[in-house]
């Protein structure tokens, strides 16, 4: 099977969805690139290159916009409401701050408020997360916040294979989907089939299987946790590593069944801890698997602070192998 980067895998999914369905279009800042210039229109394909080549094949369905995030999301929501399948790009997840109303008060709630009589099959893509020394306004995960809003589906791929299948599912889905691409993983490769395939929402992936501890991780924390678990294997500690892949819907059963078997739970996410996914899943286990627990649940997250700029500070800020290892060992102490 061919190796592809996560960037290329998502790009391929977009091309295949565009081929299959005329109602799919992409819209956002520089998704084509160089619009209105004397240069090479279409040469950019998004600042991370995820929409590369789409303009050259479908110039009418690859739409550059002004810097207007509210209008981008609103336009995607509106087009979806009348039957299109837009895939909008918001360059950085942090810019949700600019278009929150269109996502949360509009798109998320149409169907419910309209008594189940509407559909809004829009996908909004975001680059997300830390690791670039990009500081407080270009580093946030944000998916944990958006997971709290009923009406939105929230996807966080951790590898190229999943990213392609999840993107194709997202575009086919009739509900609004927020698709968070951990930008630190864009260049990471995996085996990715050329064919079209989908990965269902709400179905977790067991990245590692083991008996001693259940580890749940999201996005860029999945490969970090996998490396830790492989190292601990040498010490005779074996762990389940669960990647939920979608935070809404969440595969609660996979997590609960694993916790019932291991009796120990560590949850790892890059976002700050308050009202986040680590607390959410700790709450789930405390509520529904309490009697299976043999040790306190451990949460590994960023601290309650914005993301710092300096590389040393950011390294201390993000969960790393040391912190994940310590948490796993603490559940076994």
């Amino acid at each position: 099977m061919p190796e592809k980067t996560m960037r290329d895998a998502i790009n391929e999914a977009l091309h295949q969805a565009m081929e299959q369905d005329d109602s799919v279009f992409v819209i956002g800042e520089d998704v084509a690139g160089c619009s209105g210039s004397a240069g090479d229109v279409g040469a950019v394909g998004g600042v991370f290159g995820v929409t590369e080549g789409i303009y050259h094949r479908w110039p009418d369905r690859c739409i550059d916009t002004p810097i207007s995030e509210s209008a981008i999301v609103g336009a995607a929501a509106g087009a979806a409401l009348v039957g299109m399948r837009p895939v909008a790009e918001i360059m950085f997840a942090d810019f949700i701050g600019v278009c929150m109303d269109q996502i949360v008060n509009q798109m998320a709630k149409f169907r419910y408020m309209f008594g189940g009589k509407s559909r809004c099959p829009a996908v909004i893509r975001f680059s997300s997360g830390g690791g670039f020394s990009a500081a407080g306004q270009h580093s946030q995960a944000m998916y944990q916040v958006m997971t709290s809003f009923p009406g939105l589906k929230v996807v966080v791929p951790s590898n190229a294979y999943d990213a392609k299948g999840l993107m194709l599912s997202a575009i086919q889905d009739d509900d609004p989907v927020l698709f968070f691409e951990p930008k630190i993983l864009y260049q990471e490769t995996a085996e990715v089939p050329d064919e079209i395939y989908t990965i269902p929402f709400g179905e977790a992936n067991f990245v590692r299987e083991g008996d001693d501890v259940t580890v749940v991780a999201f996005g860029q924390m999945v490969p970090k946790a996998a490396a830790v678990i492989d190292a601990l294997g040498e010490e005779g500690i074996s762990c389940d590593l669960i990647d939920p892949r979608t935070t809404s819907p969440l595969d609660e059963n996979a997590i609960l069944e694993s916790v019932e078997a291991t009796g120990r739970l560590v949850i790892v996410d890059e976002a700050p801890p308050r009202c986040g996914l680590t607390a959410d899943i700790a709450g789930l286990a405390a509520d529904k698997a309490f009697s299976s627990l043999k040790a306190p649940i451990k949460q590994v997250s960023a601290p309650h602070s914005p993301t710092p700029f300096s590389p040393e500070l950011e390294a201390a800020y993000l969960p790393d192998a040391e912190k994940i290892t310590a948490a796993i060992k603490a559940t076994l102490a």
Partner: peptide, 13 residues
């Protein structure tokens, strides 16, 4: 004249 890669001729209507 540009916002990132987009010309003002395009982005300002």
């Amino acid at each position: 004249y540009y916002s990132e890669h987009t010309s003002i001729n395009y982005a300002v209507g």
